[in-house]
């Protein structure tokens, strides 16, 4: 079973690592094109937010499996000042310092689920998920494998 991957984000070189890891994990988890690219792009965008606005943080990628679907969970977290107005940050064109205001709304459109939890003075956690459907054949094979 595929494990969890953690990438510490502190410099722009870490963005390159984070998006490569995200793409590779999506491919290993069976995502078909263009999904690995969409996932890598969302990760890149949020990793840059960390570098630009907070300085450092962490990205955690983890496989998620349900009966009918499986996918990837991406958690992007920092211990920075927090986002004062999350609603505004999610609106297109709400530019904060040094940004264009495209990052959060753009990343949200690339993923299936997207949540932001921000505590002023404590930090921000963005949780995103991308799903793919598991067909009958895949589920059948898994059951057979479990039986041995």
């Amino acid at each position: 079973m595929e494990g969890e991957i953690r990438v510490g984000i502190g410099t722009d070189a870490d963005l390159v690592i984070a998006r490569a890891e995200g793409r590779a994990m999506a491919q290993r988890l069976g995502f078909r094109r263009p999904d690995p690219t969409l996932i890598a792009t969302a990760i890149s965008e949020l990793a840059r937010n960390l570098v630009m606005h907070v300085g450092h943080g962490e990205i955690i990628m983890r496989p998620i499996v349900e009966d009918r679907r499986s996918g990837v969970l991406v958690i992007v977290r920092d211990e920075g000042p927090g986002i004062a107005d999350v609603g505004a940050a999610l609106r297109l064109g709400h530019a904060s310092r040094g940004g264009l205001g495209l990052g959060l709304p753009g990343a949200r459109r690339l993923m299936d689920e997207f949540e932001i939890d921000s505590q002023p003075g404590k930090g921000t956690t963005v949780t995103m998920r991308k799903w793919r459907l598991r067909d009958d054949l895949e589920r059948l094979r898994e059951k057979r494998q479990q039986r041995g």
């Binding site: 690219t37 969409l38 792009t41 495209l102 753009g106 459109r109």
Partner: peptide, 8 residues
């Protein structure tokens, strides 16, 4: 596709 979906 990503550029379009992102609306870049």
């Amino acid at each position: 596709v990503a550029i379009v979906q992102f609306r870049l």
